[in-house]
């Protein structure tokens, strides 16, 4: 798994690639929290994420709760294949705002 970020006017974009599973979830969580710092508007681009398990979901939820409790918002874009399906089955598609493209996510941020 790799994570990078890009600071835009409206939001911080976090770009994730690879797998969000039991071996990478903890790293995902701590790296995201480091990158987020005091930023309020966060867009997470999952275009290059091919696999997510419940361990990955737990980390996503932890980050989401932290951002929310700091008064910010965490939104997702570019969910593909099984990642989209896992988000839907687990109800994450309704607790987080999800957009088809990064542009749409940035407009909403």
């Amino acid at each position: 798994m790799e994570i990078s970020s890009q600071k835009m006017d409206k939001a911080l974009i976090i770009i994730v690639s690879g797998r969000l599973d039991t071996t990478t979830a903890q790293d995902f969580e701590s790296t995201c929290l480091d990158l987020i710092g005091n930023e309020k508007n966060i867009v997470v681009d999952l275009q290059e994420v091919e696999y997510v398990s419940s361990a990955g979901l737990r980390s996503i939820l932890s980050v989401g709760k932290k951002v929310r409790s700091d008064g910010g918002s965490l939104i997702f874009c570019n969910l593909k294949g099984m990642v989209r399906e896992v988000f839907e089955i687990s109800g994450f598609a309704s607790i987080f705002n999800i957009y088809e493209t990064r542009e749409q996510a940035l407009e909403a941020a």
Binding site: L61, G64, K65, R68, I89, G91, S94, I95
Partner: peptide, 9 residues
Amino acid sequence: DVGQPMQDR
């Protein structure tokens, strides 16, 4: 309950 809001999950 996958319908709960985030803070309650």
